[in-house]
Design a protein around this nucleic acid. Structure first.
Lengths: 302, 302
DNA sequence: AGAATAGTGTCTCTAAGACATTATCGG
DNA sequence: CCGATAATGTCTTAGAGACACTATTCT
């Protein structure tokens, strides 16, 4: 940088400083990544004319070791010294699903003390979105005891109280994760405090319902983020196969948002984001629908 | 939980397992928090009739030790074993500014290897928003070499290339941090890859321009998040004093978004979020403006 | 034929953009 | 009076919501 080497108060150059630096002087926490792997799958439908309803699913693994032995947890693991956080997330994703190159987004880093009874653990959660048609090729392979759960949440109750300089709103939610074999149900309390024009949100687990660690909280948070992001970005396409009909796309929006959308408005909204093909989905007992694909020219803002 | 205690494959109960657990078996990274502390201040204005223009500022500290000795860095420090991530952020904020109970939000966790030449460091960045009127009371106190910098960014150039199954957009930005005494200028490249309907964004420092570590990247990211959030949340109020005029509020939006807004539309938009007072800002060489305060009853969606 | 979805047309309503107009001060 | 900001009125435009209507298939 300059001709004269920079020295610190003890007269050391950078090389000297680094040579004598003791990296072990601070006690360090363990760092892990937790994966929130979502997909949307078709449920069974007996009436051949009707569209099969879709459901949002999340991947969990059964714990084979203490703590929380036998309970269900998010896939994840320790970040090794030589890999970046994102590489660790990709590695965990690959070992769990055998899939690469899918949508992956860092969500939040959970750093409360006491999250893990063994030691201090700080963990960063990543959300991955998988197209279920890719997935079905290798469902239930080597992964011991990894299973998909249908995910739903239910509003339970809400209270709002006035305080000296603002309000406090408490909201209770039930998070339900359902499988052919298992049914997990957790209760989470979300407290929103408004004081002195500052909004703060806190999440607490009221009942973990057989979900290990604080993972019920991480799942609820991810679901909220997924809902928020699907409205103003194009992440929904990461859940779709290469070719899809507009009705299928709309179903994906509906199952994530948990409400029905009007077809006319929906089609107007996505019109610029998709490209027509000349293929049709046929043999469905009703008018065939055109297949579309994602339009990569569509530039989302940012 | 049950009468028979759960045991793992080695026949251990949870108590036995935890007693024999070796917490030091994995090599662990250091974890730090980095603080992005923003405020909006009035610049000088000679014409007594005109409103003083506002500028967005960020707090930096001058490094007194290797590495990056003499360069400017974000305030921050190590997370200690007994405090949560958020507590660490609050502690750093307090030691740096003497302020508590302000807006604080976790932004992102940076986990690339080689971010710090001393050792593996993973750091979580937190954004804090400060009302500058509170701040002026204790500006430039004990904090050695902490200073506010006016922050601006400038679009430099953009390229868009078609690839096999999507597009790649590269955008170069200049980040300028200006002070009475110093002027830092960094260049950042943002690469946005769209492949197979999946969007990925990567940030790289092209020229760190006397900003320590990868902090230029963290600052640019925080600025982008601040811009995004001010549009769909009410965080702007965290930057305002208790009483403010609507023109002042509009100025804050304008300086953060970097564009002018139409007064009529702006007033319609914030009308429900504020409460009138019967006080006026006078002696300004023009029609007095009414003071408003934040309306805590205004519920933002979430 | 009829049950179902696919796809379009169009009216209404709301919110944002644009811009003109009035109000009010300090000098 | 003048220069400046404060505050409101109103026309236009864009987009979402609502809903009716037409098109097309398979058993």
């Amino acid at each position: 940088m300059t001709d004269k080497p920079l020295v610190n108060k003890r007269g050391q150059t950078e090389q000297e400083y680094l040579r004598t630096y003791d990296a072990s002087q601070f006690e360090r926490p363990s760092v892990t990544v937790d994966m929130l792997i979502f997909t949307v799958v078709d449920e069974q439908e007996e009436n051949y004319r009707k569209l099969s309803p879709k459901s949002l699913q999340i991947l969990l693994v059964k714990r084979g070791e203490h703590p929380f032995l036998g309970q269900w947890a998010l896939p994840g693991g320790f970040v090794s010294p030589r890999e970046s956080l994102e590489d660790a997330a990709k590695r965990e994703l690959f070992t769990e699903t055998n899939i690469q190159n899918i949508y992956l987004e860092q969500l939040y880093t959970w750093g409360d003390v006491g999250r893990d009874p063994r030691m201090r653990v700080i963990s960063t959660s990543y959300m991955a979105l998988v197209d279920s048609s890719t997935l079905s090729l290798q469902a239930g392979d080597d992964a011991d005891e990894a299973e998909w759960f249908r995910i739903e949440d239910k509003w339970l109750k809400e209270t709002k109280t006035a305080t000296e300089n603002g309000t406090v709103t408490e909201k209770w939610l039930e998070l339900r994760l359902v499988n052919a074999k298992e049914e997990l149900s957790a209760t989470i309390k979300i407290t929103k405090t408004i004081a002195n024009r500052i909004v703060q949100v806190k999440r607490e687990i009221v009942d973990a319902g057989n979900i290990a660690f604080d993972h019920a909280k991480l799942i609820q948070y991810a679901l909220e983020r997924l809902r928020g992001k699907i409205e103003y970005t194009d992440i929904a396409f990461a859940l779709m196969p290469e070719l899809f009909t507009l009705s299928e796309l709309q179903q994906v929006y509906e199952v994530i948002l948990g409400k029905e959308l009007l077809a006319a408005a929906f089609r107007r909204k996505v019109a610029d984001k998709v490209l027509e093909t000349n293929q049709y989905r046929k043999h469905a007992g009703h008018r065939p629908s055109k297949y579309y694909r994602f339009n990569p020219e569509w530039m989302e803002q940012s």
